[in-house]
Design a protein around this nucleic acid. Structure first.
Lengths: 191, 191
DNA sequence: TTAAGAATAGACAGATCGGTCTGCTACTGT
DNA sequence: ACAGTAGCAGACCGATCTGTCTATTCTTAA
């Protein structure tokens, strides 16, 4: 297998479980069984590795979520599926996503608080991508274009809230709860 | 001034801005101008200092929030005030809370992911305290006792969502939005 | 007065940090 | 056949990490 990919995968597992600052290069090397020279052959610095890890997770997570949502009818079914997927993730029913430890991008922003920091911005872009997925469902639902952005922000807020409640408070049913809340919000809009 | 308190205040400022793992003892000492021996006279280890910092922030934040909420009529006004206070915090209109960098306790859980970790548990307890504040408002609103816990969880979810949206995405109006959503949820309950 | 406690500066220890480098092996495409 | 690439182990560098310790000063209460 590709050593570069092995490094990214190992680094992600360690970063996600323990935090980025808490994990050293040497730990990644020891865990993966790869030589230091090889790491610095593929990445110019730890920072570059972290960026690759974020990009890797971005693709993996977004593609998984989009494939779940796109497998059903856009709109009503799509939004339901979004929250059901979230629920599966939180309750460790998705093998490819690693045991739930909150959102890797929220966690990264917690460690790199400054919005101008490159790692914070990459995390922000990931959230924007997911937001786009939500916007598409709302358009399919027939939400007026001028309300789509505000509404998507509300749905995103519920999604982030569910992730944090599940991670910090251990509320494993938070995704289901946020789904119910989402439909109350949407019902209020359509009434 | 009390050296112990100076250390806690300085450590909090640095931890909150840069993350806990990213800040070393020496940086805290240099910033505060306090000797290393003095730190280890008051705290047995960095871990002990961190715990004191969390407790300090817990008290400061909760007392501030509770004093805001308790200054108005419990129930409708109390819940409104809760979200208005959140809005003030997010938009840096609260001098005593330091510039907004997300929730210190969410950030701590991001760095110490394991729910059994002492720092994670302290953060969880803080959230439980705030949740109690919300429950009191709901009871004053006349929410049936068997619905109070579930409803408080919903309000908490909105609150956490707003904090994350504000921090990660820079959505500074997230608190106002979550307030509107809260009233839609509550209106649905009462209808 | 004096003894204890709290503070100071900073050397020091042992470990680990990110990153460089040497020297060697193995594969692979032209 | 040979050059280039990817890989290995691990020594090494300077910096920084948490934590200990010595030696000295200041404050304060019995």
């Amino acid at each position: 297998m590709d050593k570069r990919q092995q490094l990214i995968q190992t680094a992600f597992d360690l970063f996600y479980r323990n935090g980025i600052h808490a994990v050293g290069i040497n730990q990644i090397l020891q865990t993966s069984g790869i030589a230091k020279k090889t790491l610095y052959h593929h990445f110019s610095s730890k920072q570059a590795l972290i960026e690759a890890v974020l990009q890797f997770r971005d693709e993996k997570f977004y593609n998984w979520l989009a494939s779940r949502v796109d497998a059903v009818k856009p709109g009503y079914d799509g939004l339901n599926e979004l929250f059901d997927a979230l629920d599966d993730w939180i309750n460790n029913r998705v093998n490819m996503l690693t045991d739930f430890n909150g959102c890797f991008f929220i966690n990264t922003c917690a460690e790199f608080s400054d919005p101008k920091h490159p790692l914070h911005q990459i995390s922000q872009q990931h959230k924007q991508k997911v937001n786009g997925l939500i916007e598409r469902q709302l358009r399919a639902l027939g939400v007026h274009e001028q309300a789509v952005f505000s509404m998507a922000e509300s749905i995103s807020l519920l999604k982030e809230g569910a992730i944090v409640m599940a991670h910090v408070q251990g509320k494993l049913s938070a995704a289901q709860k946020s789904k119910d809340m989402a439909w109350l919000i949407l019902a209020a809009y359509f009434s």
